[in-house]
Simulated scan of single mutants.
Amino acid sequence: MLTLPVRQLAEADRAAVERLLAAYPIAAAQVAERVAIRGLGWRADGRLYGYGSRRQPEAVLWSGGQVSPVGADAAAVAAFAEMVSGQPRVCASLVGESGAVLGLWDLLRPAWGPERTVRADQPLLVVETPPAVAADPLVRQVRPDEVDLVFPASVAMYTEEVGVSPLGDDGGRGYRGRVAELVKAGRSYARIVDGTVVFKAELAVVTRHTAQVQGVWVDPSWRGRGFAIAGMAAVVRDALRRVAPTVSLYVNDFNTPARRVYQRLGFRQVGAFATVLF
């Protein structure tokens, strides 16, 4: 077997890893937040592999509940695939820069397949200035005592977006914990009318470079009335003021209504993601 320059990284490599991640301030946000919060020691909730020299890796691969490559060219993708293909698949998804994710999946599919779906083109968008459109004044941060109110909306959003329920074998305890965590951190937003969540969104990832929005959802009976654009305008304004210098997200290429909303809010494309779901 060909010896490849891949190794598991540890806390001693953290400075080098952070330099690499800083070169991809938007695309690497998900990995960067995990490293910032958990580090690379025993507390980490996954493993980080590095490709290249011991002093400064050229690319990294996060492997945990999600697998995400950062900075990986074809040689790095091949090296990472060889490293992890002998391990059982424990992740629920592969997410990251489209070329790297699709290349990785081509090599991993024989060992890890089949996939449930592949979303090959997800424009990666960013905005640095407050939107020119009016913000919904009723969109606000969700309070800790409203977790039970927003949780069903979160389940509906996840099921609609991913195609499966997040409740799983634990009856939703793990997913509810994640919803509650975002609420407690002041990263969950909603417009609530008479006990109904009309609009919701979360800052699912926050780094010193960007706040990444996920979970954007409008109740089906309220759609078509402009709540998405006004709600997102409120989220973007608050995130830029209070959280990070940019707001970012990635969206399915086939979701034309959402892409129109983000265009009107001033988002511009800076790359493309792909997601493989199991």
Rank of each mutant, 00 (worst) to 15 (best):
M1D: 10
T3N: 14
P5S: 11
V17Q: 09
E18K: 01
A23I: 00
A28D: 11
A29I: 02
Q30C: 04
V35T: 01
I37S: 10
G39N: 09
G50W: 09
G52R: 01
E58L: 12
S63M: 08
G65E: 14
G71L: 04
A76R: 06
A79E: 12
E82H: 15
V84G: 08
V90M: 09
A92P: 02
S93Y: 00
G96Q: 06
G96W: 06
L107G: 04
P110W: 13
P110D: 05
R116P: 13
T117Y: 00
A120R: 15
D121I: 01
Q122H: 06
L125N: 14
E128Y: 04
P130D: 08
A134C: 06
V139K: 09
E146I: 05
V147Y: 11
V147T: 14
Y158H: 15
T159Q: 15
E160W: 08
V162P: 13
P166T: 00
L167Q: 11
R176E: 13
G177W: 03
R178V: 05
E181I: 01
K184S: 10
D194Q: 14
V198C: 12
L203G: 15
L203P: 11
Q212R: 10
Q214A: 06
W217V: 00
D219C: 08
G226E: 05
F227C: 10
F227W: 14
A228F: 03
A228L: 05
I229K: 08
G231I: 03
G231M: 08
M232D: 12
A233D: 07
D238I: 04
R242D: 12
T246L: 10
S248A: 15
V251K: 00
V261F: 01
Y262N: 04
R264G: 10
F267P: 11
T275W: 01
